[in-house]
Design a protein around this nucleic acid. Structure first.
Length: 729
DNA sequence: TACTGGATTATTTTT
DNA sequence: TAATCCAGTA
């Protein structure tokens, strides 16, 4: 086949520009995956060995897709090209070399759940007040530090005299020490340790530099500092680095993504060639114009304008409803109608929303309407309780050095081993320098266990017995054996609730995943299965053959496309989220707007946006205005249900009229004047987001106090006392 | 040790 | 609302 066939001039140029740094600014739907895959084919056709090519993506799904397409056009040798995610590339490298920086190559990977458990233990060990030091906040502080390649030592130095930060650095130290003890790495560590390895072991770095002479990175706008360093180190020698991205689709700042990586690529590589792909092949021109209308409100973008030769297509539909129920009913009704009319199949339709919690209403209505659907996200399959329990058994059998796994299952199902026993064992493990499972094996020498001793022994004999069987049984048999012996499913059957049945279904699903693994892998092993499972996200498992409507967050939708898209919950306070409107960081609003842009550009043929004027959030009714993003779409592109739906000051219901004079804010924001403030000018206060600062002014604004605070790091901020929830310290 | 019910609290997005 | 935590009880 001709690799350059059917390509526009820019695409051709991108495919053929193979030497030196290259930045491809690829707008939504401009065929960037096609360019990447064809570029790989072109490289090979021009004498580059497949072995020397590496392509990096963010999700396994994207990697898989690219792999398939590469296989199709390359044929021979394509299997030796590395096409994988950042995380799995790092795992592959670390499995081979991490012993060089003091870990065992058999390290385990901790997911978010494990991190949380570990963090709880750290908080307890350091005797911190969990009311002040929340594991969530600590975890995100540590994670951002890791994303910026800040070590605990560095963190401590940066903290200076900031008492709070010093405490966090202590936690960070301890947390890393615990990981090390368990021979475990968290998601962030996979990147950090790889970069560390590269920096410390020149020979390893050179080995990979020689191996990966041609590097390609997809979704470059979402890279963070560690990922940037990882790529830079690998590319430093040959400098054949091609990155593809769209600054307008950068939506992972909260996860440390550094939009500067793309905006300043030319600074890092002054000789970089820049190619813009601006022709959109995906959407109708109406959809594209709507997207452009919204995103043009952002400042500091790379100059580009998307265009298309596609027809105008239908207008964007906007409908507003009384509440979330009616909204969901309308959406399901529309879906049924489309199917009835034979317009499309279920799989052509996606419902997108801002937060996972919004899926519930749709789920209910879809169920009633008998529409097949799949929810992507919310809880990752491998993070579900029952699945994790069983995986923890497998982990324990495989390699009992993972304390968290052992602790998770030691009393699941209930064996009468309680909290006191567990802390005794932990204490013993700490004393004798073994891990938790090691201490269990020595249980008979631990004083004070009395009654629990026999229970512990029967647990360990069970595990030891399974271990002797590992080599004779398949993973599937082993898993079924565990389910049988522990009576896990039997217990659930006895519960006889919908929830229990759903859990059993998940267990069956797990068994079939094991079977698939064993069928596909040449030499399947238990460790191999556990490794594979550690890095999969929910989105990875959706296959395009099955005919389901898909429900997912806007974030999960990145990189996908659908003929028909519903964007639900288009309300200020939901999308853009409450946090971004009340906070005063305009960058965050811009990120939300990019998210909206991503959502709109997922649609190929039709886009429907819906809003509800009244919505239940966490048991409280909120009254929201129509999202500002809807207003940013050129009016002539929008088809309304009722003319007044887009009137900014229409009275939709009496409650809203009531709160009207408080400038249209949802009721949640309605000001309840605080009678007295717990702080005064000169006091030191803490803000949940900006940290610690000094109150420099308090002005009585009649309805509320306006407080001016000089924050140590965030600068001077003015805020309303009733929103800011400042705490005196 | 396990279970219950009341209180508390979280609220954005996830590889 | 829903999940989690904690104290009191069996």
């Amino acid at each position: 086949m001709n690799i350059l066939e059917d390509m526009n001039p820019q695409q051709k140029e991108a495919v053929q520009y193979t030497r030196g740094p290259l930045l491809i600014l690829a707008g939504a739907g401009s065929g960037k995956t096609r360019v990447l895959t064809h570029r790989i084919a072109y490289l090979i056709e021009n004498g580059v060995k497949p072995y020397h090519i590496m392509a990096i993506t963010f999700t396994n799904k994207a990697a898989q897709e690219m792999r398939d397409r590469v296989d199709q056009i390359v044929g021979f040798g394509s299997e030796s090209i590395w096409v994988s995610t950042f995380h799995s590339s790092c795992v592959r490298i670390l499995r081979r070399f991490i012993d060089r920086i003091g870990f065992l190559n058999s390290f385990t990977i901790y997911d978010t759940d494990d991190q949380k458990t570990l963090m709880k233990q750290v908080i307890k060990k350091l005797e911190l007040d969990p009311k002040i030091y929340k594991e969530r906040a600590l975890m995100s502080a540590i994670s951002s530090a890791k994303n910026e390649m800040i070590s605990p030592e560095q963190f401590e130095k940066n903290a200076g005299l900031d008492w709070n930060k010093k405490k966090i650095s202590q936690v960070y130290y301890e947390y890393q020490a615990e990981l090390k003890k368990n021979n475990a790495l968290d998601f962030d560590d996979l990147l950090v340790k790889t970069v560390e390895l590269f920096k410390q072991c020149q020979d390893v770095l050179e080995y990979y530099q020689d191996r990966f002479q041609y590097l390609m990175v997809d979704e470059y706008q979402d890279t963070n500092t560690v990922q940037f360093q990882f790529i830079n180190l690998l590319a430093a020698k040959n400098r054949n680095l091609c990155v593809v991205g769209d600054d307008d689709q950068s939506i992972y700042k909260f996860r440390g993504a550094n939009i500067r990586n793309i905006l300043e690529f030319e600074k890092s590589f002054p000789d970089a060639k820049v190619i813009k792909l601006e022709q959109n092949y995906r959407s109708t021109s109406n959809i594209l114009d709507a997207a452009n209308g919204v995103i043009s409100n952002n400042k500091g973008r790379k100059e580009k304008k998307l265009w298309t030769e596609n027809e105008k297509g239908a207008k964007i539909t906007f409908r507003k409803f009384q509440n979330g129920f009616e909204e969901a009913e309308y959406v399901t009704g529309e879906i049924s109608r489309k199917i009835r009319n034979g317009e499309c199949r279920y799989g052509d339709i996606a419902i997108l929303y801002r937060t996972n919690a919004q899926s519930r209403l749709f789920e209910e209505k879809l169920l009633i309407a008998n529409i097949p659907y799949k929810i992507v996200g919310s809880v990752n399959f491998y993070a579900r309780k029952e699945v994790k329990d069983l995986l923890s058994y497998l982990k324990t059998v495989d390699n009992a050095s993972d304390d968290l796994a052992v602790q998770r299952i030691i009393n699941v199902p209930k064996r009468g081993i309680g909290a006191t026993t567990i802390s005794r064992i932990q204490a013993h493990a700490a004393e004798s320098g073994t891990n938790f499972y090691g201490a269990l094996l020595e249980a008979q020498y631990i004083p004070g266990l009395s009654r629990s001793l026999s229970k512990i022994e029967s647990f360990t004999t069970f595990i030891q017995k399974l271990r002797t069987q590992v080599q004779y049984y398949s993973v599937k048999e082993l898993l079924e054996h565990i389910i049988e012996e522990t009576g896990y499913v039997k217990k659930l059957e006895a519960e006889d609730t919908d929830e229990a049945r759903a859990r059993i279904e998940n267990i069956d699903e797990l068994i079939s995943k094991v079977v698939t693994y064993e069928e596909e892998e040449e030499s399947p092993t238990l460790s191999g299965f556990l490794q594979e499972v550690a890095l999969v996200a929910d989105i990875d498992s959706i296959d395009s053959d099955s005919d389901f409507c898909l429900l997912m967050t806007l974030h999960s939708a990145k990189g996908l496309e659908f003929p028909y898209v519903f964007m639900a919950g288009m309300e200020d306070g939901i999308f853009p989220s409450y946090m971004t409107i009340t906070g005063d960081d305009p960058d965050e609003l811009e990120e939300e707007r990019r998210l909206c842009y991503v959502g709109i550009t997922r649609a190929k043929k039709e886009l429907v946006m819906t809003a509800a004027s009244q919505r239940m959030i966490r048991g409280e009714t909120q009254y929201n205005k129509v999202s500002r993003f809807v207003h940013e779409i050129p009016r002539e592109l929008v088809e309304l249900g009722r003319e007044k739906d887009l009137d900014r000051d229409a009275f939709v219901n009496p409650r809203q009229r009531f709160s009207n004079n408080v400038s249209f804010k949802p009721r949640q924001f309605t000001v309840t004047r605080l009678e007295h403030l717990e702080y005064n000018v000169g006091d030191t206060v803490r803000h949940t987001k900006f940290g610690v600062g000094e109150v420099t002014d308090i002005a009585d604004g009649g309805k509320d106090y306006e407080v001016t605070v000089h924050f140590d790091h965030a600068g001077v901020k003015k805020m309303f006392a009733s929103f800011a929830k400042l705490k005196k310290i």
